[in-house]
């Protein structure tokens, strides 16, 4: 028996919004430690890794490890039927070929349940090695989304250059060149507005804008985003999900032809 309950459907809606542009379907691996999802996008350029800890749920029970392959378009249709403040419960029997998603209004006067067929997905798991990153940047998630959106107008690629002075995002194309520099913040009143750079050595890497923009669909989940970079390894873009876990996106760098 698997049962996981969250106090607010809005969190699940935001999580789905954060992955459904990259993935058509995905397997949710459930165990007593929580729910894990790891999947590459269709073109195998990026990888999504979602971790939801069991202690972050209002109720969590998973008697046997369970892999639930879900069509994310179908899941989105079901989640559209929830109000943001509804409780949401996901339930499945061991070895089941369906999952039930139930919504309850705060006053318990409306209860709806949706049974969704599960899929057998031929999923590959990738082992992600520990990396000592050359640069780790923490910055407001909204600012990162804004920069990615703005620079995508100028080029398919964005160059991220990180030094101890700050981080520079550049794009160059037919229109010309765009550069956006962010300096590390001195003192800020609010932690969520800070730009913090931890640098071992400077790094310059090039990434495809369209993937960065897809990652920023996670912005509503978190006030801050963390970018971890190292020469010739994938960029890690991480959004914390408060008290529940995190979503990490890995993006392969572009190299010169």
């Amino acid at each position: 028996m698997f049962e996981a309950r969250l106090g607010q459907a809005t969190i699940l809606k935001k999580i789905l919004d954060a992955i459904k542009d990259l993935l058509n379907e995905a397997t949710f691996d459930c165990s007593d430690s929580g729910i894990q999802l790891q999947a590459m996008d269709n073109s195998h350029v990026s990888l999504v890794s979602l971790t939801l800890r069991s202690d972050g749920f209002d109720k969590f029970r998973c008697d046997r490890n369970l892999s639930m392959g879900m069509n994310l378009g179908s899941m989105a249709k079901i989640l559209k039927c929830a109000n943001n403040e509804d409780n949401v419960t996901m339930k499945a029997q061991d070895n089941a070929d369906t999952v039930t998603i139930m919504f309850e209004s705060a006053n318990q006067e409306k209860v709806s349940d949706y049974e969704m067929k599960l899929m057998n997905l031929d999923q590959e798991h990738l082992g992600i090695p520990e990396t000592d990153f050359s640069c780790v940047v923490r910055m407001p998630a909204m600012e990162f989304a804004r920069i990615c959106r703005d620079l995508a107008q100028f080029s398919e690629s964005v160059v991220i250059c990180c030094t101890k002075e700050g981080v520079k995002f550049s794009a160059s194309g037919d229109v010309g060149t765009a550069n956006i520099k962010l300096a590390q913040t001195g003192s800020v009143d609010k932690e969520e507005e800070a730009v913090i750079i931890e640098m071992q050595e400077p790094v310059t890497l090039t990434f495809a804008c369209r993937y960065l923009n897809a990652f920023t669909k996670a912005t509503p989940l978190s006030t801050q985003v963390q970018l971890s970079m190292c020469a010739d390894v994938p960029l890690v873009v991480e959004y914390a999900i408060k008290d529940l876990g995190h979503i990490r996106y890995y993006l392969a760098p572009k190299i010169e032809d």
Partner: peptide, 12 residues
Amino acid sequence: MQRGIDTFFKRL
């Protein structure tokens, strides 16, 4: 040139 993400990580 865009590299694939699976060229960086080992298949388990």
